[in-house]
């Protein structure tokens, strides 16, 4: 398990990351979300040791992370690129060698991955001759060789076409299934919702909420939706409820004091027919908007 505790970083007077703590459990995908300037990239850079932390620690399997550990972490920085003029196989082998692989092993693994990504025929092409999507695929391979013990990916899905997004998602799931802790940041909340086992939400340098999807949903207030055969405006007068929305016969409410929804239902059946009454499960994107608002 990769664990971040109390990470803090200032730039001048500005606190970019303030006492950030979260675990990245093995065998699962952890999504890292937050708006621009929330501190995600700064946090990930500190996790990778590219940026020094002013306070806090990053630990790996219970001990403070070492350079040798990090050498085996797969990393995809937010601002990324490779050598534009060098053939892709050559530069991938170079990067793998910097991370401790022998040339022969690196060649074998990279060739296999290039083939898997449909680039088997282009190993000798310089990077700049490839389309942007293919360049992105090469970048992904750079993070995956040698087989990483953890994956730290900053916006791995940005710039990918839908097909590549699916391939990338499969890849991340594969690594998670093999027991590798994976943390990635993304602006695509639905994607994060679909993929992630855990979520860490940052805003203004702090973690505002975190947990599994179920935990986050459970934390959110209970919500019900009701559809009547007459105007629903009267629900505003009921105690213990927060009315989120009323439109003609429809209303969406949040339970403030337990049992208030039952009183609503009793009142509604007394007034007329109830056409629909159900619990609303908020989407992660809604939770996200609420916690970061």
């Amino acid at each position: 398990m990769l664990e971040v505790s109390g990470l803090t970083r200032r730039f001048g007077d500005m606190v970019a990351v303030d006492d950030v703590s979260f675990p990245v459990p093995s065998g699962g995908l952890t999504g890292f979300v937050g708006g621009n300037g929330a501190g995600k990239t700064t946090t990930m850079r500190m996790v990778m040791g590219v940026l020094a932390a002013h306070a806090g620690t990053v630990s790996w399997q219970g001990h403070e992370v070492t350079r040798e550990d990090r050498r085996r972490f797969g990393y995809m920085p937010e601002e990324r690129g490779l050598y534009p003029k060098q053939p892709i196989l050559d530069q991938l082998v170079y990067l793998a060698r910097l991370r401790g692989m022998t040339t022969a092993d690196a060649r074998r693994e990279i060739t296999a991955l290039l083939e898997r990504f449909g680039l088997g025929a282009r190993t000798k092409d310089p990077l700049e001759k490839l389309s942007l999507g293919n360049q992105q695929r090469v970048q992904i391979i750079a993070a995956l060789v040698p087989a990483p013990i953890a994956l730290v990916l900053d916006e791995p899905f940005s710039g990918l076409d839908p097909e590549a997004i699916d391939a990338m998602a499969d890849l991340l799931r594969e690594h998670a299934r093999d027991g590798v802790p994976v943390v990635f940041s993304s602006h695509q909340l639905d994607l994060v919702d679909r993929l992630c086992d855990r979520l860490v939400v940052m805003a203004r340098g702090r973690v505002v909420t975190q947990g599994t999807g179920e935990e986050l949903r459970a934390e959110a207030a209970l919500r019900y939706r009701v559809v009547l055969d007459g105007d629903a405006g009267w629900v505003r007068d009921l105690p213990g409820l927060h009315v989120r929305d009323v439109a003609g016969p429809e209303a969406e409410i949040e339970v403030v004091s337990a049992g208030a929804e039952q009183k609503l239902l009793t009142e509604a059946t007394a007034r007329g027919n109830v056409l629909d009454f159900h619990r609303v499960v908020p989407r992660l994107s809604e939770i996200y908007r609420e916690v970061t608002a």
Binding site: Y75, P77, L82, L95
Partner: peptide, 17 residues
């Protein structure tokens, strides 16, 4: 500057001193 401009340096910095 090529390594800096192409941003590859961040990947290198994460791997080696």
């Amino acid at each position: 500057v090529e390594e800096k401009q192409s941003r590859i340096v961040e990947m290198i910095a994460a791997a080696v001193p």
